[in-house]
């Protein structure tokens, strides 16, 4: 068998190299197709050999993703993709590990693992396909379903409050947090590319339409005719200006945002220049929490900071122990402690 390709130069790969021989089985019109296509498009640009990519998933429609990628892949069990990915990364930190999950898989049954994977800053990229519904189990309310939402499991309306995935990830201190929309393919490709380059826990929420069980759930902000007035595209170092004619702005007033015409008098509020690298995530958190109809919703990279990753620290402690004590001798280890000899 060929050796681990730490040193194998990445050959020039194409999109085709990442398409597996498996027939894609999502419903026609499902938002997942677009994500798959963009992923297969950006991976050849990442500079990682194909054999060093691993796609891990849990259970749900999105979790079929690994089967369609011609890389290493592990379709695990409900909610546990992040935990499996953590183990993979500990065993072989050279791998580029991606977790594909959904709102139910990642934030309900797998919510605990998500929290800890992010706060540990394990170097994995998490793509959370948010369609605000359980698709594979045929239409129950999910942890991101809106309050009052009518679904099969909530016939007279959900009495729960939804989780905001970006807000969750920022609170968990993920070092890279972004949001994109499956139908905005260019934007999505650029966000995926950024996630691929990030070292540390990267979390990307993707607004994904489930046309079977929750059709049009993000239409209010993503529909072609309204999106420019309802989506704010975050760009590092740029003020939060948006709108069809770039005439609207997001301003900070005390501890909340205000939205209004760009040329409105300041009134104690001030225009924000987006800073992804701010070590304090408070502003990113406030931006992530902006929700239609009270606010336009932000897409793009909320946060991108570099901190030591779990796997770097884990291996660092091993290197340190080995340089201090030498690579352990089994004979010495077994013969350590208080020993005695029987003649």
């Amino acid at each position: 068998m060929a050796t681990i390709s730490e040193t194998t130069p990445a050959p020039s790969l194409t999109r085709q190299d990442f398409i597996s021989d498996q027939e894609v089985r999502w419903c026609p019109g499902c938002g997942d197709y677009a994500v798959l296509a963009q992923m297969q498009k950006i991976l050849p640009q990442v500079g990682v050999a194909r054999e060093n990519f691993v796609f891990v998933s849990g259970i749900g429609c999105s979790s079929r993703f690994p089967y369609y990628m011609n890389t290493y892949g592990f379709h695990s069990i409900h909610g546990r993709g992040t935990a499996v990915a953590t183990g993979i990364k500990c065993a072989n930190p050279n791998l580029s590990v991606w977790v594909v999950t959904g709102d139910g898989d990642g934030l309900s049954i797998g919510g605990n693992h998500m929290l800890h994977t992010l706060r540990r800053n394990v170097d994995v990229k998490v793509l959370l396909f948010n369609n605000r519904i359980y698709g594979l189990t045929k239409g129950q309310a999910s942890p991101t379903s809106e309050h009052g939402k009518h679904t099969k499991s909530t016939p007279v309306g959900s009495i729960e409050n939804p989780i905001n995935p970006v807000s969750f990830a920022i609170s968990a201190e993920a070092t890279f947090v972004a949001r994109t929309v499956a139908t905005e393919t260019k934007h999505m490709a650029s966000v995926l590319r950024r996630a691929a380059d990030h070292r540390g826990a990267a979390f990307v929420e993707i607004y994904q339409n489930c046309n079977i069980f929750n059709d049009g759930t993000f239409e209010d902000v993503t529909a072609r005719d309204v999106k420019s007035d309802r989506l704010v595209v975050l760009e590092h170092g740029k003020p939060l200006v948006f709108g069809k004619n770039s005439n609207l702005a997001v301003r900070l007033h005390n501890l909340h945002m205000e939205v209004g015409p760009l040329d409105a008098p300041s009134n104690g509020s001030h225009l924000i220049v987006h800073d992804e690298r701010a070590s304090d995530p408070t502003l990113a958190h406030i931006l992530g929490n902006m929700r239609w109809p009270d606010y336009p919703e932000c897409i793009g990279v909320f946060r991108d900071v570099r901190k030591p990753t779990y796997d770097e620290l884990l291996l660092g402690q091993i290197d340190q122990a080995q340089s201090a004590k030498g690579a352990g001798s089994l004979q010495d280890l077994i013969h350590s402690g208080d020993t005695w000899t029987i003649e």
Binding site: M1, I4, S5, E51, P66, N70, T71, G73, H75
Partner: peptide
């Protein structure tokens, strides 16, 4: 036991 990192042996496993 074929582990990720080996070229040409990319494959998918899982609970199904």
């Amino acid at each position: 036991w074929v582990t990720p990192g080996h070229p040409g042996l990319e494959h998918r496993i899982g609970g199904l």
